[in-house]
Structures are given as structure tokens and as C-alpha cells.
């Protein structure tokens, strides 16, 4: 009972923390579409016309994930989507690192080519792994406080025999 409560609080912090990450990164990217295009292009993975679409859609996807996490709707599914997007981001950074590109990840604005000694691939990957950890927690245990998910369930919040 007491333990469950603590886990709920941890889950809630993970959910709101991850929501903040997506809302901030999405808003910065949505407000500067030209810079976002440069950032996506710098990864040198997608063809130019696909880069253009990805760069304009991605910020809104991030904002949508952020809003859903903030209100706690479909937490497990949204956490899984977060994890998927984060894995794609990490793969993008790792391939740039492995190929010897000199880019900034553009994770929170910025992005594009930088001087070879100004790259921060290790930090960027670690940071994304940290976010992935938050998403992982919510996939395993999506039950949190102040979530719409809780209201959608017709039974009282504390159930006996609840696995989560």
C-alpha cells in the first residue's frame, strides 16, 4: 500500500518530467522550422524532400506526446511511442558519431554542422538514455497520480490484485 503510493509518485514525476521534455523540445522546434530543417538535414540520412516533411511534422508530434503525457491519457501507449521516437533519435546521433559527422543533435533547438571539437555525442546519447529510462518506467508501470487514465477507469483507484 505504502510502497504502491511511492511508486505512483515516482511514476507521476517520470510522466510529468517526460511531458516537460517533449513540450519544451517540440515548442522550440515548432517555433523555428528553418532551424529544425537544418538540424534534421545535418544527420544526412533522409532524402531532402523527406527531411522537409519530417522537420515540420516532428515538432507537432513531440508536442502531442507532451500534451498526452501531461494529462496522463493512454500513458503506457504514449510512453511506448516516446521510447520509439527516442530510440530513433539515439540511432540518428550514433550514426552521425560513427560516420564522423560534426553536428549538433538539435535536440532542444539549434542543430546543424558544428566544429569537430564542439560535438557532444556522448552527452546527447546519455541524455536521451535518461529520457528513455523515464519512458521505460511508464511502460512497465503506467499507473500515476493526476492522470486522465485513472478517471477513465470506473473502479476506485486502489484495486486489490492489480498487477501494475
Amino acid at each position: 500500500m505504502e510502497r504502491g503510493r511511492i511508486l505512483d509518485v515516482i511514476g507521476t514525476l517520470a510522466r510529468l518530467g517526460l511531458a516537460a521534455v517533449w513540450l519544451v523540445s517540440g515548442a522550440i522546434k515548432a517555433l523555428d522550422p528553418d532551424q529544425t530543417y537544418i538540424a534534421v538535414r545535418a544527420y544526412d540520412v533522409l532524402p531532402a524532400d523527406v527531411v522537409s516533411v519530417v522537420a515540420t511534422v516532428l515538432p507537432f508530434l513531440e508536442l502531442a506526446i507532451g500534451v498526452l503525457l501531461l494529462v496522463g491519457l493512454g500513458t503506457r501507449a504514449v510512453a511506448a511511442l516516446s521510447a520509439l521516437v527516442l530510440v530513433v533519435f539515439i540511432a540518428g546521433v550514433v550514426q552521425a558519431w560513427a560516420r564522423g559527422l560534426s553536428i549538433d543533435c538539435g535536440c532542444f533547438g539549434g542543430g546543424g554542422q558544428v566544429a569537430p571539437d564542439a560535438t557532444a555525442y556522448g552527452t546527447e546519447v546519455l541524455r536521451d538514455l535518461g529520457f528513455l529510462l523515464l519512458a521505460g518506467w511508464l511502460i512497465v508501470r503506467p499507473r500515476t497520480l493526476f492522470a486522465l487514465d485513472g478517471r477513465l477507469e470506473s473502479r476506485p483507484p486502489v484495486r486489490s490484485g492489480e498487477r501494475n
Binding site: 516533411v53 515540420t56 511534422v57 516532428l58 515538432p59 507537432f60 508530434l61 508536442l63 502531442a64 506526446i65 500534451v67 498526452l68 491519457l73 493512454g74 501507449a77 504514449v78 511511442l81
Partner: peptide
């Protein structure tokens, strides 16, 4: 359904 709708709306807005 709500998640799918919100995500779809975001993608449409982006497009």
C-alpha cells in the same frame, strides 16, 4: 482512440 486522434491531429497540423 484518444491517443491515436491526438497524434493524427498533430501529424495533420504538421503537414
Amino acid at each position: 482512440v484518444a491517443v491515436v486522434l491526438v497524434v493524427a491531429a498533430a501529424i495533420v497540423i504538421g503537414l
